[in-house]
């Protein structure tokens, strides 16, 4: 009996090794299918033609960004967005202006993926990020390669002049940190985007994002903790008692994106604040009415 067992040992070992090898192959194939989404890779290749060097001066790399956008694809799929009016996103320079919500910037990610996958030709939006991102090790590389640029007006103007499509949330963190009682109500817009649109003669494409507000419901902004952690806000999610730390992850709400018709503004970019604010108000009114219409049309949060 023992002798039998011993004699079969090499075969058993070989079987185990074979099984392990198969398992690791499966795992690797699975990882590859997550990090290489052919649909995303093809869209990136069509979105921005870059010269032979493979990088633009801001550090964007179509080749290296395939990883980031392939990973983002699964988050995009998680929110199962319904995209309306994508044909309003033009070729050439433009500013895509959205309502910011949902505590974490998944709204930006979903809008970017929508223009990449749904627009014809695919558009790769260049998001403007907080100025401290270049100081974060590794994050700065991943962001730059994916086309994120430092949120500086001159940077934005230079990118527009290079015919890029910019993604801007003029509410900034005031918008993304909204608590439940302020959901789908635009807070004050900055004026910078309007001055840039006027200066670069770039059309504004409003985009209403519906569904992000419910992905992480914040009941309260715990300001002292936010200050202590150096964060712009610290949400207290509604589901915290039920889910604990998991409540900081987004629920699989369904996103609805409404891209509006291009808005073109005329006039001096260095006009008085009051004059610029009048133009900004035209955009906020338009966006708010798109949000309201979208909310009315929505049948379910999921």
């Amino acid at each position: 009996m023992l002798a039998e067992l011993v004699s079969s040992l090499p075969a058993t070992l070989a079987d185990t090794t074979e099984n392990l090898r198969r398992a690791s192959d499966t795992l690797r194939d699975f990882a590859a299918s997550i990090t290489h989404v052919p649909e995303v890779e093809e869209a990136i290749e069509r979105a921005i033609p870059i010269g032979a060097s493979g990088y633009d001066p801001w550090g964007f790399s179509p080749e290296e960004s395939k990883l980031q956008y392939s990973l983002a694809y699964w988050i995009y799929r998680y929110f199962r967005p319904v995209v309306h009016g994508i044909e309003n996103v033009p070729a050439g320079r433009c500013l895509v202006i959205g309502n910011h919500s949902g505590q974490l910037p998944f709204d930006g990610l979903v809008v970017s993926m929508a223009t990449l996958l749904e627009a014809e030709p695919p558009r790769l939006l260049r998001p403007m990020a907080e100025r401290w991102f270049p100081t974060l090790p590794f994050v700065n590389i991943a962001f730059s390669r994916a086309g994120v640029a430092v949120g500086d007006p001159i940077n934005c103007r230079n990118l527009l002049e290079a015919e890029n499509a910019m993604l801007v949330f003029p509410e900034g963190t005031r918008g993304s940190g909204k608590t439940w009682d302020h959901r789908y109500k635009l807070v004050r817009f900055g004026r910078g985007f309007m001055r840039l649109a006027l200066q670069a003669k770039a059309p504004i494409i409003p985009v209403a994002v519906i569904g992000a507000e419910e992905s992480i419901i914040s009941l309260y902004d715990f300001k002292p903790l936010a200050r202590a952690l150096g964060m712009p806000y610290f949400p207290v999610p509604a589901l915290l008692p039920l889910l604990g730390p998991l409540a900081f992850l987004p629920l699989p709400t369904r996103f609805h994106l409404y891209f509006g018709e291009p808005m073109v503004f005329d006039g001096p970019f260095d006009d008085e604040d009051e004059a610029i604010e009048k133009k900004v108000a035209v955009v906020t009114e338009r966006l708010q009415s798109m949000i309201d219409t979208g909310l009315e049309a929505r049948e379910s949060v999921f």
Binding site: P57, W58, R131, V150, D152, N155, N158
Partner: peptide
């Protein structure tokens, strides 16, 4: 002949 070093490499730098 001066140098571009005087602009400084800074996290807030825009491009170009």
């Amino acid at each position: 002949l001066s140098t571009f070093h005087i602009y400084g490499a800074h996290p807030h730098n825009h491009t170009p």
